[in-house]
C-alpha cells in the first residue's frame, strides 16, 4: 500500500507540511481562517534545525503497538491505515505512551490525533506530500 516516506536530505525545515496538514484537517475552506493567528495542531511535525531536519508522522506500522495497547478499541486498522474511532476514544493517551515515534499527538481540542493519510478529509493525496516544495515527502508504495 501507499504510505508517506521522507527524505531527510531534501527537507528544508520550512514546516509547510505542518500548515498543509492543519489546514486539510480543519474542515475549513479558507487557509487564512483556519490557520492565521492560531496555534496549529498538525499530525505531522518537523524535527531538527536548519541544517538537519525531517518531517515525521504516523508510520502506519505493519504491527502497530498503539492498536494493541488501546484501552477502548478506538484505534483500529482499516486497509492498512491506523484509524481512530472518535465515538470510542476516551483520550487516555495510552497510544501516546507506547508510540515509539512520538507520532500520536494532541489535536485541536487537546484530544488524541494522528495521521490517517488524509482519508478522513477531502484530499486525494496526503496534503503534506502534495504541498512539499522539495519532494522531501512522497506518497508511494515501498
Amino acid at each position: 500500500m501507499k504510505k508517506l516516506y521522507f527524505n531527510e536530505k531534501w527537507c528544508l525545515g520550512c514546516r509547510l507540511c505542518e500548515y498543509n496538514c492543519a489546514f486539510a484537517n480543519s474542515g475549513s475552506k479558507s487557509m487564512v481562517k483556519a490557520l492565521k493567528g492560531k496555534d496549529i495542531h498538525p499530525n505531522i511535525h518537523v524535527e531538527g534545525d536548519n541544517n538537519h531536519s525531517y518531517p515525521l508522522n504516523c508510520r502506519q506500522c505493519n504491527d502497530p503497538i498503539c492498536v494493541k495497547s488501546c484501552i477502548s478499541g478506538a484505534l483500529h486498522l482499516e486497509d492498512g491505515i491506523i484509524k481512530i474511532d472518535k465515538t470510542k476514544c476516551v483520550n487516555c493517551m495510552t497510544c501516546m505512551m507506547v508510540c515509539p515515534y512520538g507520532a500520536i499527538v494532541l489535536g485541536d481540542k487537546g484530544t488524541i490525533s494522528k495521521c490517517e493519510l488524509c482519508t478522513n478529509n477531502q484530499n486525494k493525496v496526503p496534503a503534506c506530500a502534495a504541498g512539499c516544495p522539495n519532494k522531501a515527502i512522497v506518497f508511494e508504495e515501498r
Partner: peptide, 20 residues
C-alpha cells in the same frame, strides 16, 4: 523534548524511508 534522534541516525533513516 524527546525525539527519534535518540535512536541514532541509521535507525532514523529506516523510520523515515521504509515501511516499519
Amino acid at each position: 523534548s524527546p525525539t527519534i534522534d535518540i535512536y541514532g541516525h541509521d535507525t532514523v533513516k529506516t523510520i523515515l524511508e521504509s515501511a516499519v
